[in-house]
Every structure is written in structure tokens, then in C-alpha cells.
Design a protein around this nucleic acid. Structure first.
Lengths: 321, 321
DNA sequence: CTTAGAATATTTATCGATACAAGACTTATG
DNA sequence: CATAAGTCTTGTATCGATAAATATTCTAAG
């Protein structure tokens, strides 16, 4: 017990006793057993982070920030890859219920509004994504509609009139794709430009490959376009490559804008204009909200929704001619 | 106890009993408490992965593969970011000693040969990096020298004679930088080309920014060069941008090759030639070795060193004219 | 109908840290 | 010197799953 008091900086331990304990711990190479501590204290000092795929620059950068923020709160991060399947997202929730971690930051792609009741759980949880769930859950979201609208408006302002949108599949629930697509349409409507379904491209993966293939197909189809709003920077970088292969010049023939403000876009040729959603702030807020829930205890507060601000970053791919 | 038997698929449980238990578990919404299980069983079914930075494409892709492989063995992955500091690498080791996880995959950059005794630990551990430690520890490494030699030889074969090397700082111990640099020099020597110290560039960070700044400086210095061997693909992508800004054409004026075979290099302009170290295989092997150590128990085997094979991937940045 | 032997179920002790409470020791004060 | 109030130390029970041993039920052969 005295050892435990020393370990936990209990106030009433004589310094001579403390010294003796510390000395003995060193001699014996003593290490606390976390399993025992977790069992007794009911806390694990570990939070979960469940995202679809780890090997995407966006999520990698996001995870790095979450790990840093968590470390600042003395929390470790356990990583789950859900691979954008509903089952895995539910299983991440179940793990959390198993008390493997004190709380969970969950990025939802597979779960839909009809699964909202899955989230009615009594342990700390923060959802990354749109506020499609009515449960008493904190959310950290992007201003998808506003960002997409600003991006599209930026293309229009630069003179584009036939702007293609490269988006992911859109479900019945509002997901990032449909919200960004809505922003795109709002901007077109505000400028009085007709939308042309031939310019709406759906890809399955928000990857370099996805962007490349989609734009190659678009070019091959013969449909004319002078602007490209891509779902993410990664998609846009794949698109840039496809345009280069098609001998279309950016920004002279086609202007391109992405979404996410990845570092990669600062060094591509041409450099990539984008929407900066301030994901560092999102990571900080997600951890902060989770920590509040974890330590909050009785002081329950209403579920919060944090929406990160967006800002257009102009680079070469949308430069004025 | 019967519940425990059901949970663990103990062979002698009557199916009617099992059914009753399962029913009761559902009614009560029972969840196992991992802390208790860990305490009693002495296992956590979690492994640690400690790498320098998570928000680098190479490590992000590597981590994703480790997570997948671990999942196949019913293991979860706890991620540590060491930020390439010695203290954090040691602290990752300490956590492992705390039995927070069953084993640890540790990428060393800060630890040097003089710290080898830190690795003389009695729990499962796999080191990513060069075999600079003599302790009884499994290693998973890249064929850095061979890869660098092949890359440089490829540039020579394509006609380059003044090849610059963009490497990281080299310590006294063999690290990735010094090994790749050694390979570079071997290739030059084999071709009878003199080395010119003006062509040896050191950068602090293996990042886009690092590569961009270094090559901008090189171009600004007026030193002539017709080939560029970069420490990593990320560095090379930064270099490509710097060359573009300097109006140097790739591959006409300068040929460029990287190391890692990141997906990004397939979609850059121009696409990037590289050394493929098969890091998927490395991830698979690291988990496999660790699992062997964890479950091996008495059947101790000698420390293994796995060196992944390397293969040159030719793309536009080193295309013959 | 017995009874060996297997199949199934249950009891007990335990992993190691810590909450809680009680005990021991100090010091201050009248 | 007695007592209170504080400071420091230690006993005991407990978190929940499970290893090991023990107890019970079942099956099949004689």
C-alpha cells in the first residue's frame, strides 16, 4: 500500500519512506502492472481511434495529431482500422464497451442514421463526421457544404463555367460526398450556372487511383469541362496526373481544386488549390471533448457539435491566367 | 466458471448449457472485462508499434499493414509515436515492460549501438532497422545498401555521370542514411566515377519540404548534376518540385530516383522511379516473428534477421531519352 | 444394476494495484 | 502530562476472469 501511495504521489508519505521505496523499486526493477491497475481503478488511460483506413495521408496526419493530443493528457491511443465496413465500426464500439479503452473517437462511414441507436452508449465517445445521429453523442465535423461551396465559387470566380465534380458514392444519409456535392450545386446555382449530369462523376475510392481513373474516363468520354472540384486532395492529385497524361494543361485548360489541405498539394506540379478544414483543430477538439467526457463524470453536459472552419488555399492549379 | 468456459470455447460444455449462458449474456448485455482477463491470463492481446512519425506516408502504409496482420492473429495494435527521440524509444520499451502489450515492434532511429543493452529484455520484441544491436532480438531490415547501389547503378546505366545524393544526417552507427549512402558510393566506384563532395547533400528531415529545400539550394549553388538519388520517395517528390521550379526538366536534364515505392510516386508528374523494398512483406514478417516469440514460450529460437528484397521500379523520372 | 471412465459443472484461490478505513506515530497546545 | 489534530503507515477487501482441482452427472460395458 505504501508503494502504491508513492506511485500515485499520495500527499502523506514521508520523504525518507518515499526514498526507501524508490530505492527498492530500482533494485528490484519493479514495474507497475497495468492490467491490475486497470482492473482496480476501472480506467485504462487508453483511448481508441477507429478510422476507415490508416494508409491515407489524411487519416495518417489526423491520427498523428490525435496521438500527440492524447499524449498531452497522459493517454495512449489504440488504433482500429474499420475498413469502412459497418461491422467493423460496430465492433469498435463493442470493444469500447469491453472497457479496453476509456473512450473512443470513431469515424463513421458505414454506419447510417438507422444505426443511430448503436451509439446510445454510456461510455465516452466522439464521432467524427456529420451529425446524422440523434444520440447523446459529441460530434466533430467539417463544414463540408460551406467548404465545397467556397471551392466551387472559387473556380467560378476564376472563370470556369463547366465544372466537373468528382465525388464518392452518395448514400441516403448525408455523408461527406453528398454534402460536398450539395455545396458544389449551391455554388453553381448561386452563379446561375446549369448543372450537367455528365459532369458528375462517382468514384468508389477516395484514392489517387480513383481520381486518376475517373478523370481519364471523363476525358475519354469527350465531355468538355474547364474546372474540376475533387472530393479530396488525394483524388485531385490523381486527377492532375490524368490531365497531364491527356495533355490538358492546369490551370490553362482546366482548373483543379481539392479538399483537405494535405502537405502533398504544396509540392505537386502544379501545386494544388484546396479547402483547408483545419484538421489539426479537429483532432485537438476531438480529444478535448473525449477527455471532458471521461473525467467529467457527474458534470454531464449537453452533446456538443464542433464544426471546423474552412478556408480556401489558392495555389497554382487555380491560378488566374 | 461455466461462463468463462463458454467464452473460451472450452471443449466440455453441454450445448444446452452453452445456450443458456449465451442467452443470459444477451439479456444482461454482458461484456468481458479485459482488464481482469489480462490480469489473470498475463496476456493483453495487444502489441505495440512504435515508430518515429505517423504522418509520413511510408509509416502510415506500414502501420496499416501491421494492423491488418495483427488482426489476423487476433491482436490489437497500440501505437506509439517516438518522434525520433531516444527518450521516447526507451519509454516505449518501458511500457512494454509494464506489460501493456504482449510484444513490441520498434523502429529505432534514436537508439545507437551503445544503447544495445536496453534491448536485452525478456519480452517479445522485433526491431525495425539495421542489425546494429547484438542483443538476442529479432530484426526486420531493408537491403539498404543493395537497394541504393541498384538505384545508383540504374542512374548510371541511363547515362548519368554527376549524381547527387540527398541523404539524412549520418551518425556514427550505421543508419538508413549511411547505408544508402554507402550503396551509392559503391555503385559509383564500380562504374569508375569519382565522387564529388559537392554532390553530397544532407537534410534534417525526410520530408517533401526537406527534399525541396535541399535541391533548391543545390540548384542555386550552381553545381552541375544530371542525376539525383534521394533517400526516400517523399524526399524525391519534394526534389521533383524544386527541379520544376528551377526549370530543369526530368528526365531530360536530370534523372531522379527515390526509395520506398510509395503509391504517390505512381501519380506524380513525372512519375517517380524508385526502389521497392517490399514493406508489405516486412510488416508481415515483423508480426510473424513477434507472434512466434509471444506464443513460442519454451521453444526459443535464435534471433532472426529478415532482410526484405529490393527491386528497381522504373518510371518516367529515369526514362531513357 | 453396477461401476469405471469420460463428460460436464462448480469451488476455491489467485493475478497486482488500490479504495477505504483503521492504526500508529508526531507535533502542538493548554 | 494529557489530549487533540494532524501526519504517516498498514490491513483488508475488492475489481472480474480463469487455472487448477474437485465434485457431479452421464454413458456404456459387464
Amino acid at each position: 500500500m505504501t508503494v502504491s501511495n508513492v506511485l500515485n504521489d499520495h500527499p502523506h508519505v514521508k520523504s525518507s519512506t518515499r526514498a526507501k521505496v524508490v530505492k527498492a523499486m530500482e533494485e528490484l526493477d519493479y514495474r507497475v502492472n497495468h492490467a491490475a491497475r486497470n482492473l482496480r481503478s476501472g480506467r485504462t488511460f487508453t483511448i481508441g481511434l477507429a478510422v476507415a483506413e490508416f494508409d491515407r495521408p489524411y487519416w495518417g496526419q489526423f491520427a498523428a495529431r490525435v496521438i500527440e493530443e492524447a499524449a498531452a493528457h497522459n493517454l495512449r491511443v489504440l488504433v482500429e482500422q474499420t475498413g469502412r465496413s459497418k461491422e467493423n465500426e460496430i465492433s469498435a464500439l463493442a470493444l469500447s464497451r469491453n472497457r479496453m479503452y476509456d473512450g473512443l473517437i470513431l469515424s463513421t462511414v458505414g454506419l447510417s442514421a438507422s444505426d443511430a441507436n448503436m451509439l446510445r452508449v454510456d461510455y465516452p465517445i466522439v464521432i467524427l463526421g456529420e451529425r446524422i445521429f440523434s444520440g447523446p453523442v459529441d460530434h466533430v465535423a467539417m463544414a463540408n457544404v460551406e467548404g465545397a461551396e467556397a471551392a466551387t465559387a472559387h473556380l467560378i470566380e476564376r472563370g470556369c463555367r463547366r465544372i466537373a465534380a468528382v465525388m464518392g458514392p452518395m448514400g441516403a444519409d448525408p455523408d461527406a460526398s453528398s454534402l460536398r456535392f450539395a455545396g458544389y450545386q449551391q455554388a453553381l446555382a448561386a452563379a446561375g450556372i446549369d448543372t450537367d449530369p455528365a459532369l458528375h462523376i462517382t468514384i468508389n475510392e477516395w484514392t489517387l487511383k480513383g481520381g486518376h481513373e475517373a478523370v481519364s474516363r471523363l476525358v475519354g468520354s469527350g465531355v468538355q469541362f474547364d474546372g474540376l472540384f475533387c472530393a479530396t486532395d488525394t483524388v485531385a492529385l490523381g486527377a492532375l496526373r490524368a490531365l497531364h497524361e491527356a495533355k490538358l494543361r492546369v490551370p490553362e485548360d482546366v482548373k483543379v481544386i481539392g479538399f483537405d489541405n494535405l502537405t502533398e498539394g504544396q509540392y505537386s506540379t502544379p501545386t494544388l488549390s484546396t479547402v483547408n478544414p483545419d484538421s489539426a483543430e479537429m483532432a485537438r477538439m476531438a480529444v478535448k471533448l473525449l477527455v471532458q467526457r471521461i473525467s467529467g463524470g457527474s458534470a454531464k453536459r449537453e452533446p456538443t457539435e464542433f464544426v471546423s472552419s474552412v478556408r480556401i488555399v489558392e495555389r497554382e492549379s487555380t491560378a488566374a491566367l
